[in-house]
Simulated assay, not measured.
Amino acid sequence: MLCPLHKLPKELSGTREKTKRYALKRESQHGKAEVIAHHGASTNPLWKVPSHKWVLCCSGLTNAEKEVVSEFTKMTGVSLSKTYGPNVTHIIASTDENGACRRTLKFLMAILEGRWILKIDWIKACMQAMEPVAEEGYQISVDVHGIKDGPHLGRLRVMNKVINSSFNFNQSFSMGEFQPSYKGYLQDMVVAAGGYVLHRKPISGDMRGLPSESTTYIIYNAESEESGFAKKLLCSRRQDEAEALASSNGAKVAAHSWVLDSIAACNLQTL
């Protein structure tokens, strides 16, 4: 689920058309992240190693933490991006007292593409050492929903250039009743994870040409602006409709939170 309360965070709010979000394509990925600070060269002669290949992107940072990152980029010449894109190398995310970070689109996309997802402490350590510090000791290992090791597994998955058998999104998905912008983000993440999105109701034969282990999933929205009994009734109706559709073509049913949990864990979760 996306935070807070499984809704799109502020950095993702707005319509799908107006938001300069990362456009994902299966065959190729075009368009770099929107770099808002590109200093080009270190302004501090004590900084020991050129880091011009780094592109940082912040996720859920406080204003004070953003100031630290800004100071670091000016000192080192490292680029800072407002949006996520294929040129981003490091996500710097805010964490709570338990070391857990909020789940944002940037966080989930970075897991899928094997980017570093680090605590602000890594920035501070680099500034103190006046040289790049190894990232491993600062990698975030858990999100606020309790899903663990996704960032680490995501990096291994990409570095090994293989699809881990425990995280095979080579499936097709049919999305149910969602806000258009939210549905768009879900679809983009499914595609980035290796899945296929059906823009219509699934029919017999949809899986023809796909690997034999592929499955069609009907994804329904398990969240609502309603509360109490009204929310329970609405979500139950959506689930019933998804199950009725799935029964007609042998598909499986899953709440959208299952997709997000699976991506956050870099491991398909049990239904």
Rank of each mutant, 00 (worst) to 15 (best):
138 Y>E: 03
168 N>A: 03
270 T>N: 13
162 V>Y: 00
189 M>W: 09
196 Y>S: 15
212 S>N: 03
87 N>Q: 10
91 I>K: 06
251 A>H: 00
38 H>R: 08
37 A>I: 11
48 K>M: 10
35 V>D: 01
59 S>M: 07
208 R>K: 15
158 V>T: 12
72 F>G: 01
66 K>A: 09
200 R>V: 02
93 A>E: 03
57 C>K: 05
228 G>L: 01
21 R>T: 11
105 L>V: 11
38 H>I: 02
31 G>L: 02
102 R>V: 12
239 Q>P: 00
5 L>M: 13
31 G>E: 09
31 G>P: 08
218 I>Q: 04
207 M>V: 12
87 N>C: 08
65 E>R: 10
77 G>F: 05
252 K>D: 11
123 I>V: 15
1 M>W: 11
77 G>Y: 07
13 S>H: 13
62 T>W: 07
63 N>W: 14
151 P>Q: 04
99 G>R: 09
62 T>G: 08
269 Q>S: 11
36 I>Y: 08
183 K>R: 13
183 K>E: 09
133 V>C: 01
180 P>E: 12
148 K>G: 05
120 I>Y: 06
147 I>R: 11
263 I>V: 14
115 R>L: 15
117 I>S: 06
91 I>H: 10
250 G>P: 02
126 C>N: 02
249 N>C: 14
258 W>Q: 10
252 K>E: 10
250 G>C: 06
108 L>W: 01
131 E>T: 12
50 P>N: 02
9 P>M: 00
64 A>C: 11
69 V>E: 06
149 D>G: 09
73 T>D: 06
184 G>E: 03
125 A>D: 03
57 C>R: 01
215 T>P: 01
19 T>V: 15
117 I>K: 08
145 H>W: 06
157 R>S: 11
27 E>I: 10
174 S>A: 14
116 W>H: 12
164 N>Q: 10
31 G>H: 06
232 K>V: 05
96 D>I: 13
33 A>I: 00
155 R>V: 13
127 M>L: 09
58 C>N: 12
95 T>W: 08
237 R>E: 11
114 G>Y: 12
169 F>C: 05
91 I>T: 02
132 P>M: 03
93 A>R: 02
87 N>V: 05
